[in-house]
Amino acid sequence: MGSLLKVTPALAVVVGLLVAAGATVAWAGRLGHARAILGACLRAALQLGAVSLVIAWVVGVPAGVGAFLLVMYGVASFTAGRRISRTHPWPAALPVAAGTFPVLALLFGSGVAPAQGVVIIPIAGILLGGCLTATALAGRRAVDELRVRKGEVEAALALGFLDRDAALEVCRPAAAQALVPALDQTRTVGLVTLPGAFVGMLLGGAEPLEAGIVQLVVLVALLAAEAVAVLVTVELVARGSFRAER
Rank of each mutant, 00 (worst) to 15 (best):
T100M: 04
E207W: 09
V75W: 12
A97M: 14
E226I: 01
G190S: 01
G39Y: 08
G117H: 00
R149T: 02
A176V: 03
E152H: 14
E210I: 14
S52C: 00
V232W: 02
I121S: 12
T186N: 03
R149Q: 04
V237K: 00
L17M: 09
A98I: 10
G204C: 13
L137A: 06
V214C: 11
G117L: 06
Y73M: 00
L183I: 06
A229F: 01
C171I: 02
L168K: 00
V228R: 05
V199A: 13
L31R: 05
D144K: 08
L132I: 12
L70A: 12
L222Q: 14
I37S: 08
S77E: 06
A197L: 07
L94H: 07
M72G: 05
L157S: 07
A93W: 02
E226P: 15
L223N: 11
S3R: 15
A23R: 12
V199C: 01
D163Y: 03
A167L: 07
E207N: 09
A92Q: 08
E245A: 11
R140K: 13
F78T: 12
G99K: 02
A211M: 11
G130I: 03
A221N: 07
L183V: 09
V232L: 08
H33A: 15
L128C: 12
F68R: 08
T87P: 00
P173G: 06
V103L: 10
G16E: 14
G22N: 04
G117A: 07
E169G: 01
F242Y: 05
T186W: 10
T87Q: 08
A113D: 05
P95K: 10
A115K: 09
L194S: 13
D163G: 07
A115R: 04
A124K: 10
T233H: 06
E154P: 08
V119D: 05
S85T: 12
V61P: 12
A138N: 01
L5N: 05
